[in-house]
Nucleic acid binder design. Structure first.
Lengths: 184, 184
DNA sequence: GCGTTTGTACTGACCGGTCAGTTTGATTAC
DNA sequence: GTAATCAAACTGACCGGTCAGTACAAACGC
């Protein structure tokens, strides 16, 4: 009987969960290997270094996130596009909470080894929002508006995840979209 | 002539700057002491432990932030209150960028030693926004709406700080308030 | 006035422990 | 038979925390 997950995937799943909670430096490779049920040597065999393992988590995560955001808004414009992006971002936060936390913790840091990788998270995610803004509201500042929309959804999503998990995604989406789309 | 800063303050200033950039675990007490121009022992003499030093940064920061937010909205309701809170939060992010980064990086983690301290940042900051929402828009969900408003401002502010520092606070405030107050 | 004591702030060498990464040699799976 | 994995020991750097000692000024005794 073959495992559902490869050794590589087992290590990645354990790593992202531990690092999201404790941070990169506070998580040891021994911890990751133990949590993955794998020998420490296998981590280095598969990824070469702790940093490279971490970068693989970022790279996979940003790819998954941006692909899902682009797919979600495909063919939509204006308020419908924004609604779709907000919904999909909340879905992604709910499905991959560890990546969301990790990203939030690292994205505004500077001078790290993986700055290049982590910067892509912001660049490519914000870009999807910025494109929608530029298409439908050309008079608005695309990048600052994108950051505002992304931030509103992200923080509401993390609040949901960490402090109000009993809420439904519908409630959270309504709160975000009401705030964004209906004048206070 | 006496120094402007006490040893305690020198250590705190160095610590918050380093920790905001690298994270708590990745910043050594030696680094902090060197940056502050004091001996390592002085850090432990003044704060007892690395964790206690960190908690003092959080406690001071949350006090300053919530006081300034409350003062800013005093006597205002509705859209004017929201405008004042957004403006003041952006001001605080601009004046104390290190605290803003540190807070963003730590606030959604769980299980840390300083969870108690860091949780106050969220509780007390969000509360100011939630009160305004509850007063003026009773039909909306106060806590999720507060998270949305706070997140929109915070992420736009950090985007400004880290990636578009040449922008003026007026531009950033306009982008946030347009998105929140004017229907897309 | 002046030696002594006391309290406080600070110092930096040092210690025990932890961590990333290496090495080795055996074992498994295709 | 070879690529992947395992277990375990090891290395060298680094880190949080300790501690014996220094500096110095205020308080005290005479």
């Amino acid at each position: 009987m073959s495992d559902t997950f490869t050794t590589r995937e087992l290590i990645q799943r354990a790593a992202i969960s531990l690092i999201a909670d404790r941070g990169f430096t506070a998580t040891s490779v021994d911890d990751i290997a133990t949590a993955a049920g794998v020998a420490k040597g296998s981590v280095f065999y598969n990824f070469g270094s702790k940093t490279a393992l971490f970068e693989s988590l970022i790279d996979d995560g940003v790819e998954r996130l941006t692909t899902s955001l682009r797919t979600a808004r495909e063919g939509l414009t204006g308020r419908r596009a924004v609604g779709a992006l907000v919904h999909e971002l909340l879905e992604q936060i709910h499905t991959h909470p560890d990546f969301a936390k990790l990203m939030t913790a690292e994205v505004f840091r500077t001078g790290r080894e993986w700055e290049e990788s982590i910067r892509q998270v912001r660049d490519r995610s914000f870009a999807v929002f910025a494109e929608v803004v530029a298409e439908s509201w050309p008079q608005r500042d695309p990048s600052l508006t994108a950051a505002t929309l992304f931030g509103a959804t992200l923080v509401a999503g993390l609040e949901w995840l960490a402090f109000q998990p009993e809420r439904s995604i519908v409630e959270v989406r309504r709160a975000v979209l009401s705030t964004i789309l209906d004048p206070l």
